[in-house]
Design a protein around this nucleic acid. Sequence first.
DNA 1: CTCATGTGGTGTTTATAATACACTAAGACG
DNA 2: CGTCTTAGTGTATTATAAACACCACATGAG
Lengths: 228, 228
Amino acid sequence: MYSYEYPHPAVTVDCVVFGLDDGGLKVLLIQRDLEPFALSWALPGGSIKLDEDLGQSARRELAEETGVTDLYLEQLATFGKPGRDPRERVITVAYFAIVNLLEHKVSPDTGARSAAWFPVDDSPPLAFDHRLILDLALMRLQSKLRNQPLGFEFLPEKFTLTQVQRLYETILCEGLDKRNFRKKILTTGLLVPLDEVEIDVAHRAAQLYRFDKEAYVRLQAQGYAFEI
Amino acid sequence: MYSYEYPHPAVTVDCVVFGLDDGGLKVLLIQRDLEPFALSWALPGGSIKLDEDLGQSARRELAEETGVTDLYLEQLATFGKPGRDPRERVITVAYFAIVNLLEHKVSPDTGARSAAWFPVDDSPPLAFDHRLILDLALMRLQSKLRNQPLGFEFLPEKFTLTQVQRLYETILCEGLDKRNFRKKILTTGLLVPLDEVEIDVAHRAAQLYRFDKEAYVRLQAQGYAFEI
DNA sequence: CTCATGTGGTGTTTATAATACACTAAGACG
DNA sequence: CGTCTTAGTGTATTATAAACACCACATGAG
């Protein structure tokens, strides 16, 4: 067996989990109970185990700390500036995910010690350099949304076009033309109209759609796919 | 002082450095002199030091192993599957860069132990999962090139439009229409025509341009910028 | 000397995609 | 029964991308 001459840093994973509701774009945070930054809010995450893949570690930590499971995680970037953790050198691999907030409520009895959803643009100060990570994730989310139809993970299984448009407007922080938006989103071929309609807040019947995941995978296959 | 309960993996950086010449797109590799994979070719890289930023580590390893310095490195992704190094758990943060190959010749006296440029699509088998890293870098390079004017780093300070087009065609593996290409690349406003002309292989005078780095920075500023 | 070859340079037309824009139908509620 | 709210729809305009062919000039071969 051989070994490296250099000392090893700690390696952690952190997850930026975005959710959406009427109040806007939210991010899932946990309250730390240990020093440093005890009582501060932070991105869920923690040390990797040596026999786990990075993505698995992220998923495990997320489940342990927030109870949130079953989500699509994508690698964001790795942060490793010396001094970002006062204890020792810590490299953190950041992941990001988007989920339907309503299906991922957090409460003590889901296993969450003290997890909560916060508005991204009005979150408490974050521990370590987590604000930096969050900001990068936000940029990535916006850029992904601009370049490809995405974000249906934020919505329930069945949704209306108006909901999709609100989603886009909220995340991109800009108003979109209703007719152009519907045209564009429908010509992607990713939305399947259902036979059902939803009765709306104003008691107006609205056509329901579902996201055609297989069509999406087919599209991805002939385009780019970033996974490791 | 506090400490983590989990054991620490090794952390390394690896660099995918692309260069271009008449023979096509090349990648900078080094020949390993130690087990495992002794004598195999591999991406330049190595263990981080605890007081260095990740990018600094990448730059240092690259200089030590290949003599290549002064380049723009961008973080690509982090690879950490258990078993990717037979010795121990190793997390590697991959960086990628594009350089002008002619200005970065490698030879033993530049400090390179045994570094060489290889065609990307005809490289020797690589150590570890380096082929995977290289393939991801290649995809990233193509996708960047498609979405924004880039790649001038491959060229010398002064260059002709034909050179730029050849660059694009080589990397994207597709032919491009000359007039449309020139139109598009000139309307970006990133190329400054010089008073000089170059006398070409066929002894034909060709207009020289230089890359307007400041204009590029201005553009980036109001668009996306991915750095950590 | 001239003719074939290779390379730099140039505009216009057509198709496709993005944008701007305004009204109707229907139920809720007072 | 009038007002409010929301779902749904089509066309004209503009910008962007794609297709396409020829000339000028120097070289080198015969």
